[in-house]
């Protein structure tokens, strides 16, 4: 009998809690980011699969990784914003493709994040999060980080086999060139932050966008297949700003 009473009490207690939870807005929201990388709509893999670049060249990707940083949630009605401090996340097709951040619960309808590392952190030797120099993303240990890396085997018509090496970082650390903000409208996808304890933001990156929008880049018309600085790097950075990411 006593046992039954305890059981009943605990059930009541439990349901009471549940009711409470329903009414109460959680103090914090956990936002779970995940990234999927596509080539011409197909999820990429790094095991010798050949893809066609927009200019008709064949490409076998070997490495695709980039930094996400300076994540900010904004409310376009009242201009409120919350920035994730010290949030530097390395996304790697061969490794980790998700991360989570937590922020005080509030209404946000817009997300902004950057590809790359801001000047302050790019030129400092302090390492937080994924900025460990062992992650194969530093130019060398003095001159900052590569923001986005794409490497693979490249061929065009009867040309020799070449390596397409795309390493985009700061051409000029003083003006943060190639450190680009990406804006995502959360409301349009029904992904506003508000009263939820957690929300999943699944982002897709379509790699062909790196070569078409707004700048059309034909590798076979370039002097060589390494893009690590200069004008073409700037063009690719503008492409990743514009069309690379979309929210599922």
């Amino acid at each position: 009998m006593k046992k039954l009473a305890i059981l009943l009490l605990s059930i009541i207690g439990f349901t009471a809690c549940q009711n409470d939870d329903k009414d109460r807005i959680p103090a914090e929201t956990e936002v779970n980011f995940s990234f999927t990388h596509l080539f011409n709509g197909e999820e990429i893999e790094l095991k010798n699969q050949t893809y066609t670049l927009p200019a008709g060249e064949s490409f076998i990707p070997r490495k695709f990784k980039y930094y996400i940083s300076n994540i900010t949630f904004e409310n376009s009605q009242n201009d409120a914003a919350y920035k994730i401090e010290d949030g530097y996340f390395l996304i790697d097709q061969a490794g980790k493709k998700e991360f989570s951040v937590t922020l005080p619960t509030a209404e946000y309808d817009k997300l902004t994040f950057f590809i790359g590392i801001d000047k302050a952190r790019n030129l400092s030797t302090d390492q937080v999060g994924d900025l460990d120099p062992n992650n194969d993303m530093v130019w060398n240990w003095n001159t900052g980080y590569k923001f986005l890396v794409l490497e693979g085997v490249w061929e065009y018509q009867s040309s020799d086999r070449s390596g397409l090496i795309v390493h985009i970082g700061n051409n000029n650390p003083e003006n943060e060139q190639n450190f680009k903000a990406i804006s995502i409208n959360l409301e349009a996808k029904g992904k506003n932050l508000g009263s939820n304890a957690s929300i999943n933001l699944d982002l897709e990156a379509e790699l062909s966008e790196l070569f078409i929008n707004p700048n059309s880049i034909k590798i076979h018309e370039l002097e060589n297949t390494s893009i690590m600085g200069g004008d073409v790097a700037i063009q690719i950075a503008n492409n990743y700003k514009e069309g690379l990411f979309s929210l599922k």
């Binding site: 130019w139 060398n140 240990w141 003095n142 001159t143 390493h167 690590m228 600085g229």
Partner: peptide, 17 residues
């Protein structure tokens, strides 16, 4: 030597490696 060791060269950025 260490800096050269860890650096992929990029002549367009004058980075030697």
């Amino acid at each position: 030597g260490m800096e050269l060791f860890f650096t992929h060269p990029d002549p367009s950025l004058q980075i030697r490696g």
